[in-house]
Design a protein around this nucleic acid. Structure first.
Length: 432
DNA sequence: CCTAATGTTGACAGC
DNA sequence: CGCTGTCAACATTAG
């Protein structure tokens, strides 16, 4: 028991199925769970995070802190870039090991390379584990000869060679920490407490209704609630769910999967249990397993494609002369297009932070190839700001899909901004 | 080199 | 209500 370990939470804001966190406890004399509030996200000029998203993240952190308290530990929330702050913590706590979950996004990869350099300079061992995705995305791409599949069928064929995802690991519990100290200072709350929205300079009053509280506790409860509906699980077909029902017609587990409050592997295996008991069930791409595979599909495509979040220098993206029209863009963003279905969706997005997948299709098609002929990159930024589940790879991938820039090319299949909504809401209740 | 088939979930008329 | 063909003809890939 000689290792003095920092476990760095980034995504993966959970105690269940968190292999890097378990690795942090192995042979550890001391464990310090840390989250950095990176000014890149707090103040970022070219990176907008809406207030609903901030609230969701802070709730995730509070829930994580709560879970750690039950294990006689606390979450250390540190303000500053990890590259700058880790050396101070390494010295203060005499750290010998740093653990964290693998993150495949370009921003994270660049940051983590710098952090590895910082750790090496301080003689700190770095231990990483894959648990955000079902598979090790780098290995998936390697298995396909170095480039990612660009069709879902191709992706499924590739996955069939990989077998099942790795099973989830044990939830962190007191047994993992029995010989490990989890120091908490008297002034912990002041120095390292989870901040409030006001602490971050955000206005609580700007938040919408709290329909989807953040955190692992809420994530697991939400999953369990849906898993009980075995018939619903087995018959689930995404295209048959409604984009404009008054209550969500799908699980709304996406915000929790994005932050890693819920492990994709845990959800995958819990679904598999239900499927095995019922024998007859829907299949990918439309099934719930299929939805997790879509997530994996876009994570894989994003890691294997340069400049995945823009048109320029993106090898999979069709080059289009999009218009530039700030008035149209503002009207779309603010729900003032004059098309009630489109405007209702954009209003729900800004107020509630979640809209149905097909509602995203509708407004994305409208903004790009369908009606306004504006760049999908503009839409991507708006979703990034407002969606609680805004997930870099999936957001970029779906915007290219809907604008017929990549993956999907039948640009003449256009969603009607009037007729499409009518199919599932004849009275216009959603709009009203 | 060419052709034909293929691609998660369009709208609409007509049967 | 559910199915089929048409609309017009994309990018990509298998053969």
């Amino acid at each position: 028991m000689t290792q003095r370990t920092i476990h760095w939470f980034r995504k993966g804001l959970r105690l269940h199925d968190n292999p890097a966190l378990l690795a942090a406890c192995e042979n550890a004399s001391h464990l310090y769970p840390v989250f950095f509030l990176d000014p890149h996200f707090v103040k970022g000029d070219n990176y907008r995070v809406g207030v609903n998203r901030w609230r969701f993240l802070l709730e995730c952190l509070r829930d994580l802190d709560c879970g750690l308290r039950k294990l006689n530990s606390r979450l250390y929330v540190v303000k500053g870039r990890p590259q700058d702050m880790l050396p101070l913590l390494f010295r203060e706590w005499c750290v010998t090991r740093l653990t964290f979950e693998v993150d495949t996004e370009p921003f994270a990869r660049h940051r983590d390379r710098e952090v590895e350099g910082v750790a090496a300079a301080h003689g700190v061992e770095v231990v990483t584990r894959v648990s955000h995705t079902l598979f090790d995305v780098e290995k998936t791409i390697a298995k396909n000869g170095g480039s990612p599949p660009l069709t879902y069928q191709g992706f499924q064929k590739l996955l069939s060679k990989l077998g099942l995802p790795a099973r989830p690991v044990d939830t962190l519990c007191k047994a993992h920490l029995q010989d490990c100290e989890t120091p908490v200072a008297d002034d912990h709350e002041d120095r390292y407490g989870v901040p409030s929205l006001a602490d971050l300079g955000k206005e609580e009053t700007e938040c919408g209704p709290r329909l989807y509280p953040g955190g692992e506790t809420e994530a697991v409860e939400r999953m369990e609630r849906h898993l009980k509906k075995t018939n619903w699980i087995c018959k689930f077909e995404k295209p048959q769910t409604s984009p404009n029902s008054l209550e969500p017609s799908t699980t709304v587990l996406s915000p929790y999967l994005k932050f890693g409050c819920l492990s994709a592997r845990t959800f995958y295996y819990r679904l598999l249990d239900v499927y095995r008991l019922n024998k007859v069930h829907t299949q990918p791409p439309v099934s719930l397993h299929g939805q997790l595979l879509w997530r994996e599909f876009f994570y894989t495509a994003a890691l294997g494609t340069s400049n995945f979040d823009r048109m320029k220098d993106n090898p999979v993206c069709v080059q289009v002369q999009w218009d530039s029209n700030p008035q149209y863009l503002a009207a779309w963003k603010q729900g003032r297009t004059g098309y009630p279905f489109i405007d209702a969706i954009m209003t729900q997005l800004r107020q509630e932070g979640w809209i149905h997948h097909l509602a995203r299709h509708s407004v994305a098609c409208f903004l790009t190839r369908g009606d306004l002929w504006l760049s999908w990159e503009e839409g991507q930024k708006v979703f990034e700001e407002y969606l609680l589940d805004a997930d870099w790879s999936i957001n970029a991938g779906n915007w290219m899909w809907l604008s017929a820039s990549a993956f999907f090319h039948q640009y003449f299949r256009v969603y009607s901004p009037v007729a499409f909504g009518k199919k599932t809401d004849k009275n216009g209740d959603y709009i009203k």
